[in-house]
Design a protein around this nucleic acid. Structure first.
Lengths: 175, 175
DNA sequence: TGTGAAAAGGCTACACG
DNA sequence: CGTGTAGCCTTTTCACA
């Protein structure tokens, strides 16, 4: 049992049961996966083994989707981040699907949302400089036959990043 | 009572030196922090100990900023994600700073970018439903005295999430 | 679920190239 | 100077109550 990169054909939404302990575990673990089970256990009032069991179960059930490291984009050569709003010519299923596939293949595209409203897609793109961004738009965006227009917002400050969910319905003290 | 992660007295942003081994380690580790050092070592041609040392060094130097878990927002009660473009009335330093602080306090705000162009800020917000989003806008956005207007894009599909950087897999001649 | 033992992985000291 | 090896320590996992 190794990589299960295969598509998940089903999502056990209804079967997945989360209790208050799980929430309190996740509230800590999502911020720092190196936060060890023993300490989480002390904080939530459970043994380390119980915390491990719950983490394992939540990984298998898909509640924990992945565990990743956030790197310093600046030091690694990508000091510039741009958000891009894209308007397509035709919003037919084929076209949408094709554009999604194209974005998945672009390594510089960090995020890609298919949205309602003024634009069809909104991207987050990292680049080495603005010249690199221009090259990206020419090679990845403007070559897409279905793009009507796009708008760029250059990020001046990443005020908040990450995806920590609000899991704190309460800070009920144990005991 | 062991050595805790003491505060980092210095951050060598500019002096940090990364070689090809580090890049190849990060290329794997950033996608999956449970990818153990021994296997990384086999893949990049280093011993497990060397991989550990390099990971530790990169944590301390700040190249690895944090290690987090991405959770299933849908199952955890936040099935709706909205992107929000915000236009401020005054772009003075005080106002900008105040708005940033306000967004940092909002747990539902996953991401917040201060950008150039058509908007001043672009947010990613998770919510329980559209009614919850409306409440959010009323309580978190419209109460901010400096907001001129805002636009909402509702996410229909998270085509791509996460922040994995393009780390030249094997071919990065010093350029 | 908690407990305690076994297994696995991470961390460090030391010698080598 | 960084690596590999070996050994220790921590963390996770498993069997059982």
């Amino acid at each position: 049992m190794n990589d299960k990169n295969a598509a998940k054909p089903q999502q056990n939404h209804s079967i997945t049961a989360i209790d208050e302990f799980d929430r309190r575990i996740l509230a800590r673990y999502q911020h720092d996966t190196r936060h060890i089970a023993q300490r989480i256990g002390e904080e939530v009032g459970l043994s380390a083994a119980a915390v491990q069991r719950r983490l394992k179960r939540m990984r298998e059930s898909g509640i924990i989707e992945r565990e990743t490291a956030t790197l310093d984009a600046h030091t690694l050569g990508y000091p510039v981040t741009c958000l891009v709003g894209i308007d397509l010519l035709e919003e037919r299923n084929e076209q949408i699907k094709a554009f999604k596939q194209a974005m998945l293949k672009q390594a510089q595209v960090q995020q890609c949302y298919y949205v309602t409203g003024e634009y069809d897609f909104i991207l987050t793109v990292v680049c080495r400089d603005l010249q690199d961004y221009e090259r990206f738009t020419q090679e990845a965006i403007m070559t897409e036959p279905n793009v009507r227009s796009f708008t760029t917002w250059v990020v001046m400050d990443k005020v908040k990043v990450g995806t920590a969910l609000p899991l704190a319905p309460d800070q009920t003290p144990p005991r």
